[in-house]
Structure formats: structure tokens, C-alpha cells
Design a protein around this nucleic acid. Sequence first.
DNA 1: CATGAATGAGTATTCATTCAT
DNA 2: AATGAATGAATACTCATTCAT
Lengths: 219, 219, 219, 219
Amino acid sequence: MGLATYRKSVSETKRAAILKAAREIFLRDGYSRAAMAEIAREADVSTATLYKHFDSKETLFAAVVQDAYRETDTSMFVDIAGKSARTVLKNIAALYADQQFDGQMNDLLRVVIAEVPSAPDLAREVYRNSVLKRYGHLQTTVEALVARGDLRPHDASASVRHLAGMVKEFVVWPGLFALGFARPGNMDAKIDACIDAYLKIYGTRPLESAPSQEDKIGT
Amino acid sequence: MGLATYRKSVSETKRAAILKAAREIFLRDGYSRAAMAEIAREADVSTATLYKHFDSKETLFAAVVQDAYRETDTSMFVDIAGKSARTVLKNIAALYADQQFDGQMNDLLRVVIAEVPSAPDLAREVYRNSVLKRYGHLQTTVEALVARGDLRPHDASASVRHLAGMVKEFVVWPGLFALGFARPGNMDAKIDACIDAYLKIYGTRPLESAPSQEDKIGT
Amino acid sequence: MGLATYRKSVSETKRAAILKAAREIFLRDGYSRAAMAEIAREADVSTATLYKHFDSKETLFAAVVQDAYRETDTSMFVDIAGKSARTVLKNIAALYADQQFDGQMNDLLRVVIAEVPSAPDLAREVYRNSVLKRYGHLQTTVEALVARGDLRPHDASASVRHLAGMVKEFVVWPGLFALGFARPGNMDAKIDACIDAYLKIYGTRPLESAPSQEDKIGT
Amino acid sequence: MGLATYRKSVSETKRAAILKAAREIFLRDGYSRAAMAEIAREADVSTATLYKHFDSKETLFAAVVQDAYRETDTSMFVDIAGKSARTVLKNIAALYADQQFDGQMNDLLRVVIAEVPSAPDLAREVYRNSVLKRYGHLQTTVEALVARGDLRPHDASASVRHLAGMVKEFVVWPGLFALGFARPGNMDAKIDACIDAYLKIYGTRPLESAPSQEDKIGT
DNA sequence: CATGAATGAGTATTCATTCAT
DNA sequence: AATGAATGAATACTCATTCAT
């Protein structure tokens, strides 16, 4: 049994190494240009071993994507107790931005989008499990804020998408068009401005602790 | 000269046929999977003729993209005279949506995004000439509405991106994750909701002719 | 008839332009890499016109070669009257060297040799009409020198090849291995040394006007 | 390790088969006309395997050339002890002729020369490692003969090239102009005549064991 | 169980030659 | 007679996947 355990752990190690290498290569080269042989070399395993773990290039890619989203998707629940609506929303947005930038989510998203014609199921799954699931979390939070009286009653399912759309405009969209798009210095101010806009519509208080954001916003 | 004219017209015809076929194949298969031979066959020319017109696969793809954007980018100026802010913004949004859906812009965008690692210049150019240029047009219009007193004075360069972000969330974003994403039936209502949100923040009048949109919005 | 003459002269002009362009391109790129389209462009004619004059690439190449050799092969007769054997042989060798270097003969030779597998007849013809014919001329001259008593009686058909072999070693051989091999500064001294060696064997006089060549020769 | 050894031997076998096939095809068709697919077929491997062993057509060709010269270049040292100058030189010349004819060196040389425009480095290397190196060996031998008193003191670096030039005239030169030029029956007599000429200039003894070569020489 | 050599189908690109005007 | 656009066959090279050891 000790042997079996040992073997299993070795196997798991290799699997992790393959996933790491594959992520790197897929992100750098895109799906089509990524070569299985290079992934194997980078992971320091033989191609045969690679195929022992993942049936095909497609399977491997799907695993890379799942793996990347597994790290992120649960972490967006926040405790609203003792925090203003603004603070809560800012925290969530900051978390989201962190994930996009630090986890190379934009690069990954780009590859997933690229493979829509040949892997439509994967893209749909990513959309559901990542995009829509986040909206769900956000909506739950927003509804809690409404219940607490920090936000006016409204259709939260629509408002969260408005908010998300505004934030993505700065956090995701430019990253789709450039490799390695990094967090600009004024990112926080831009996100603040989105939340301000949101609170102007749905907030119950005049403009709680509103920073004079208008002068900070430029391009 | 008759000969030259004849040849030119034949050549133009073939060029157009190639572009059409290339667009179709690129949109269907993505860049990497698209085969020059198939494009040639679809355009009913030989591969050599194809290469007479376009130096390489990359060049051809760039031409397809330019071609697609040429059809759209000039058409977003609207006359605001005699129209309410809401009407003006709705018209622009509708125009944008039309372009995205009818011109297969989402599919094209996906392919451009896919090629960021290998054709970063093309992507940057698309981002500039298409995305940013549209924001410029929209900003001009918004500033005119401000000048007319329909909107409150504000940083229009930021607000147009907020508006665009909200609209894209419904018009573009889902289209990146699915082949042939078509305009959903409730698209107009969703766009209306975005504009309502925008006018709630920047509008000068209470809520001019506001439709009760909230009950129409679901998923 | 005036018209016919005009046309003919135009045609001849074009033919000459094609030959000139073809020679240039063939010498620069070799046979296989030379492109008919580029030759036509360089000659400022259409490809169709090119094919009107020369049936095929092979035909054109053969014509280029014939043309090149036509300019040179008749000019090696020299008048021995009033000149020493040394002077006569030096003149001939100098003439030969001039032809090889100025007429780009080495480059041409290289292309002919390259095409032996696909154009054996052409190579054989070049060998006969150029190499062997020159030997014939040289032999005639040598026999005249023998008759005059400047050289000892011997098998001139063999001796001329020995002389030619020695000279080629310096004049032709290195040129086959390098593009654009130019006449080195010490070429004359090297040729003199070959002729000295020749005269040591076949000369009748001790060493008529022998320059102390040994110190000049190095590599 | 048994596995590694096995694989290595299989790999070496394939590599050798590829080199053999490539040599054959290159010699037969020349560089440009030779097709990698045909070489692979002839070697009974897939094209991919071929490319595993040799990065490109150029690399393969260079390897073929190196391989051919590796077989020959070390073998030209001869022991002069107890042999007359004539015998020594004859042995060397015979060795050289054997290499040229048996090793298909003339055919190979032709292909190398053909590729001068596109692979100048390879040609230069062949010239240095093969042509010039041989001259060096020959010069060493000649200087030993001078030291022993069999040849008169002279500039050996020049004289060996004269000798080589004379021999090449018969052994190499015609072979460049015809595919599969084989050793003619009178080759030995022709080579003898070259050595006779050489000894007439540089030999110290009247004409040791001189065969009456003059009647044997024709064309 | 791991290996890495071998596969063969697939692709972008070139070029000698023809033909409708 | 001259044009130059069009052809289609040919070719170097790549890569996901398999299999004998």
C-alpha cells in the first residue's frame, strides 16, 4: 500500500506539472499553436505519459481551464456585516480585478474564446460556471444589501450585470486585445467610478462617503 | 485601355470573391483551422490567384478584418436635432447592436482576439479603429446632448464607457462564448434598461417617457 | 517592309533584353531558383512575350549559355610572329583569365555544372565547344612554337592540358566554390609561374628572360 | 539502459539509411530537384523521422557532404620510406583518383558547386576541408622528398598546386560535366604523364625509371 | 508504468506555363 | 503581337497520437 500511495503521489505530481506547463504554453501560444511535445518537455515528462493523463489535446485544454477556474470561483462570497455598500462592492470588484490580472484570466479567456468554433461546450461551460456563477454570487450580495436597506429595491439580476459590464469595460475588455495586459495604475479610480455610478442609481443614501471622483477620471 | 479596364474589373470581382469566402471560412473555423486551399476553392479561384491578391494568410486575414470594419465604422454619427436624449441613445445602441449581429462582428471579434498572440498589431488596430473610435463618436454625441441641456455636465469620456460596458454585457459578451449568437428577443428591453440606468445618473429630467422596463428583464 | 523591319528590330531588342536579364538572374540565383517571372520583369517584358521567344526555361538557359560562349570562344587565336614563346603563352593565359573574370564565366560554369543531371547535353556541348575547343586553339599555337624551334617537339595535345590544368587551378577552381570570385592581385605572378614550369619542361632555351618568380609565389 | 542502447542502435541505423538515401538522391537529382519525401521513402522512414534526424533539407545536405568527406580526408598520408619519389607521387595520385571515382566525389562536388549561391558556407568549408587540406598533406610529403634529396629545393606550396592542377584536369574536370563520369582505361598513363612533367622540373635524378609515356597519351 | 522514436496526414506557399482579351 | 491574370501541381515542414521496448 505504501508503494501504491507513493506511485499515486508521483502520478499526481506529474499531473500537476503537466497542467502547469500546459497552462503556460496555452496562454503563451494559444490553443492551435501550442504543441503537445513542448508541453511534455516543459513538464519534464514523455509525450506518452502526457497522454496517459490526458486523452487528447482538447481534454488537456479543458482540464487546464477547469483547473484555472477552480482556484477562483468560490472566493467571491464576502461578509457584508459592518461594511457599507460601497465598501462591499469595492471589495468584490477588487477581488475580481485581482483574479483577472494575477491569475492571467484574461489570457485564458482569450484562448477559450478562440476555441469556441472547435470546443463550444467548453466555452459554454466556462460562461456558465465562471461568468454566470459570479453574477449569481454578486446578486446574492446585492440582495442582502437591499434587505439591509443600503440599496433601493430593484431587479438585482439586471443591475449586477450593469455593474459587471461597466467594470469589465476596464478590467477585461482591453486585456482581450493585448497579450499580458497589466493592471493600469488608475484602475482603482476607474472601478470606484463604476461603483459610484451604480450607487447613484440604486443607493439609498445621498452619496455616502463619496470621494470626489470626477476629477480623478480621465483616460 | 478597354483591356486594362476589363482585367481590372475581373480582378476586382475575384478579389471580392476571395474576401467573401475568406470571411466565411475564417468565421466558421477560426484562423488556424482555416485552410487557404479551402478558401480558394470556396472563392472558385486557384490558390495561386489567391496569393496574387493576398501575400499570405496573415495578410488575407487582416484584409478580411479591415473590410468588415470598413462597412461599419462611419455610420455611427446621428443627428440629435429634434430627438430626445433617450431616443438618440437608443438609436445609437440599436445601430451598434445591428452591426454586431448582422455583420457577424462578434464572430469576427472572436477570431481577432484569438490571434492576439500571433498578430498583436492587428488586434491593437482593431481595438483602436473600432472600439475606441466608436467611443469617440459616442462621446461627441453625449457632449452635444450636454450642451443642449438634456444631460448634466459630467466627464463624458468616462460615462460613455460605462454605457458601452453595460450594453456590451448583453450585446457582445455572450456572443464571444457561442458561435452564431443571435439577437435575443428581449434585446431591445435590455438595451433600454441600460439607457435608463445611464439617464438616471446623467439625465436632467426626472425620467422622460420612462417605460416600465423592470418587469421585462429576466435572463 | 519598313514595318516588318521595324517589328523585327523591336523583337530582336526584346530578345536581347531577355537574354541579358536571364543571364543576370541565372548567374545570381542558379537555375532552379531563378524565376521566369522575375526574368520577365527584369527584361521589362511580359511572361507571354518571354515564352514567345523561348519555349521553356531550359531553352532559355541553353540560349544564355550559348550566347555567353559565343562572345568568347573565337578570340583565342594569337599571332606568334615576333613574340617569344613566353610572351605568346602569357598573352593567351591573360586572355583566358580576362574572359573568366570579366565575362563571369566562372559563375556561368557553375550553373552549367549544376544542371548536368537535368541538362546533360548542354553541359557536354559546353565542354566540347568551350573547353576542348580552347585546347585545340592552344595546341595549334604550341605546335607553331615547336615548328619555330621555341619549344621542343613533344605531344602537344597532352602538354596543353597540363598547362591548362595548372592555370585553371588558380583561375577557375576557386571561382567554382565562391560567388563572385574576383581576380586576386597576385594572379599574374601565379600564371607566370605556371608558364615557367611549362617552359622548364618544353622550352628549348635555358630560361629565356626568366623572372625570378620563385620569391613571388606564395599563397 | 538496455532500452536506451537498443533505441540508440535503431536510431543510428535509421540515420545511416537516411544519409545513404539522401546521398543517392542528391547525387542523382541535384539539391533543388531532390525531394525530401522521396529521400524518406527511399530510406524507408517517414518524413517526420527524417526531420527528427535532420532539421532541414540544408542540414541534411551538409551532413551528406560531411559524411562523404569524412570517409576520405584522413587517408592521404603515405610513408615515403623505401619508395622513390615517382612511386610516392603515383601512390598519392592513385589514391586521389580512387577517392574521386569510387566515392562519387565528382558527382558530389558538382552538387556542392551548384549550391554555392544558396549555401556559400558549405562550399567554402568543402574547399577548405577537402581541397586545401589535401594540398597541405601533399606539400608535407613533397617537402619530405626534398629533404631526402629526391626533389630539388623549391616552393612546394606552389608546385603541389601545379601537380594537382594537372591531375585534376583529367580526373576531376571532365567529371564535372557528365553524370557518372567513370575512370577511363588510360587514366593511369595520364596521371603518370603528369608526374613525369612534375619530375622533369623538380626531380634531382635524370628521369628515374621513366616509362616511354608519350606514345600512350592520346585523348 | 514510463519512454521517445516513429508516424502520415495536413498546410502554406511557389512557379513554369497558358490563354482570353 | 503583346499582355498579365490564372492555373494546379509540387514541396518543405509540423504535429497530435501510437507502440515496441
